[in-house]
């Protein structure tokens, strides 16, 4: 599989990354190198190997269901660009 210029631009748009044509072209080359590597690996027979969700065979540590956090919104909001009545303000979004 290889990526087209349009694929690269679409991925950039989905990730909200602004790129120009030159950057898209450079990135396309880099990403295709990665896809080539994946293609090479896919040549290996994995019929009897179940997919892994993580590189190591370790499992998630769990925490007990207790409230440990306190209200720190004043500190957090001190660095926010716009705040009112305890709310973070953002440019209007209506879907």
């Amino acid at each position: 599989m290889s990526l087209s210029q349009d694929d690269v631009k679409r991925i950039a748009r989905l990730a909200r990354i602004e790129i120009d044509d030159a950057q898209a072209q450079a990135t396309q080359g880099q990403l295709n190198t990665i896809f080539d590597l994946i293609a090479t690996m896919q040549a290996v027979n994995t019929d009897n190997v179940s997919p892994m969700a993580h590189a190591q065979e370790v499992y998630q540590r769990l925490r007990d269901d207790v409230v440990t956090e306190t209200d720190r919104h004043a500190a957090f909001q001190a660095v926010a660009p716009a705040v009112e009545n305890g709310l973070y303000l953002v440019p209007k979004v209506i879907e």
Binding site: E84, G86, L87, Y88, L89, V90, P91, K92, V93, I94
Partner: peptide, 15 residues
């Protein structure tokens, strides 16, 4: 939660 009442043309966010 997004609160779309008018905050000077902006949206309020409660997390």
């Amino acid at each position: 939660k997004s609160l779309h009442e008018d905050f000077h043309g902006m949206t309020g966010i409660d997390l």
